[in-house]
Amino acid sequence: MNDATVMNAADADVAARSWLNDIAGGDQRALEHFYREYHGAVYQFALRLVRNPADAAELVNETMLEVWKAASGFRGGSRVKTWVLSITSHRAVDLLRRKKRHSGSVEIEDDIVDHAACALPDVLSGAENARHVRTCIERLPERQRQVVHLTFFEQLAYPEIAQVLDVPTGTVKTRMMHAKAKLVHCLGSFLSHGESP
């Protein structure tokens, strides 16, 4: 993040705190401001989590309803964006549980990738193809995809990601390491098999 980005993020956070204060007092116009400011971030994160535009839109709605009900509960210990994305994360877990699509992601933490088959230097040329990289990100298991998204799309610090996902910071780093291994493997497959590994 450059200085301008940092300043913009800080300004946005100050405005959002003011809106939250008004929302806690029942001000729907403040909620509308808040909604328009955070809709994009919440929707994109939700889409990463559920991979379905309809479910992502539902998560946005549920997240903003929670903001309306729980604005007074925001204690200011984190950035507002971190707080609102953590609501989205929790709501996504609920949604995925309801849809019984959550199974299968639990064992991802211990997922082993065959590094030997695709060494990092070999795949770096493949990493220059942004489309390949995005395809590989999409193929990551849910929990690793969350961490990659929050890091590079939302540009959150790793302690903030830990807050959003409600996990220790070590878990965030571990998921990112696993994501790296998967990305290297996936990009290596592109090199081996051309356009469709």
Binding site: L120, A127, A130, V148, H149, F152, F153, K180
Partner: peptide, 10 residues
């Protein structure tokens, strides 16, 4: 370089 490529793609 890998992470920079990921950041660019995103």
């Amino acid at each position: 370089r890998l992470w920079q490529a990921v950041a660019r793609a995103v």
